[in-house]
Computed example of a mutant assay.
Amino acid sequence: MADHQRIHPVVVDAEAPPPARPLVPQGSFRSEKGDQRQRQVPLQRTLAGMPPPLKPPKRRNCWCRCLCWTISLLILLLIIVGATAGILYLVFQPKLPKYSVDNLRISDLTLNFDLSLYARFDVRITAENPNKNIGIYYEKGSHLSVWYKSTKLCQGSIPRFYQGHQNRTVLNVALAGQNQYGRTLMDALQEQQQTGRIPLDLKIDVPVSIKLGKLKLKKVRVLGTCMLIVDSLSTNSLISIKASTCNFGLKL
């Protein structure tokens, strides 16, 4: 066999350390970095394309909170007012005052030269306060008037006074007025007088203040109407009241 075909033995050093090998192949390391870059690029693009996170609507929350507080306070106030009114009602047991027309006198009913009608009525009214613990102040600004159907004949007012507990007060009130359609009105009254039943309405509007113990409350108005049926309209004579129906109420 030729020399160049001889096999030379390879000398191996047993004590030499084995060649160091990379834990991760270079190719794979690069590929992993590439993968990470490829993965990071679409993630960044995705985050860049997303809208910014919405901030909590602070103003709206504050407005809703204020509205809830306001409603709660109103409800609490209504409860307190209702409880107070209930306690006052149980303690004082309020009742509406009563009124009645005792008699009616026509002191003047004259047709003037200018065809206006002048009327003067004297009315006696009884006011009764049935309450045991409530006083009534009759204030300035009262208004009483006598009407025939839809036409006002005369008007007047009652004086200021205080009515105590369970008190009955008789009031003599003078009412006077002038109507420009005197001729027409006088003819209608005379025709109605022939029947012996003349309808008249006494309208009452009186401001009063209620006194609970030592506490004086704000003004309210006593509103009412007394529907009267009288027999005649003769002057200077006491007129007979055949029927009387009165309805009253309070207006805050």
Rank of each mutant, 00 (worst) to 15 (best):
H8K: 11
V11L: 09
P19M: 07
P19H: 07
L23R: 13
P25A: 15
Q26T: 12
F29W: 15
E32Q: 11
R37S: 15
Q40M: 13
P42C: 07
L43E: 11
L47V: 07
R59P: 01
R59L: 10
W63Y: 14
W63G: 06
T70S: 11
I71A: 13
I79P: 02
A83C: 05
A83F: 08
A85I: 14
F92L: 04
P94K: 06
Y99Q: 08
S100Q: 05
D102G: 05
N103W: 14
L104I: 03
D108Y: 06
L111I: 03
F113V: 15
D114Q: 10
D114C: 02
F121L: 11
D122W: 04
V123H: 03
T126D: 11
P130T: 05
N131I: 02
I134D: 02
E139F: 00
K140W: 05
H143M: 06
S150Y: 06
T151V: 09
K152L: 10
Q155A: 10
G164C: 04
H165Y: 10
H165E: 15
R168H: 11
V170I: 12
V170Y: 09
L171M: 10
N172T: 08
Q178E: 14
Q178Y: 05
Q178P: 01
Y181F: 12
Y181S: 15
L185E: 01
L185F: 02
L185S: 02
D187T: 13
D187C: 04
D187G: 08
Q190I: 02
Q192E: 15
Q193A: 14
T195K: 12
G196Q: 05
I198D: 07
K203G: 00
V206E: 02
V208A: 06
K214E: 10
L217I: 09
K218H: 14
G224N: 01
T225I: 15
T225A: 03
L228G: 00
I229F: 08
I229E: 15
I229N: 11
S237A: 10
I241P: 00
K242W: 07
A243G: 05
F248L: 13
L250I: 15
K251M: 07
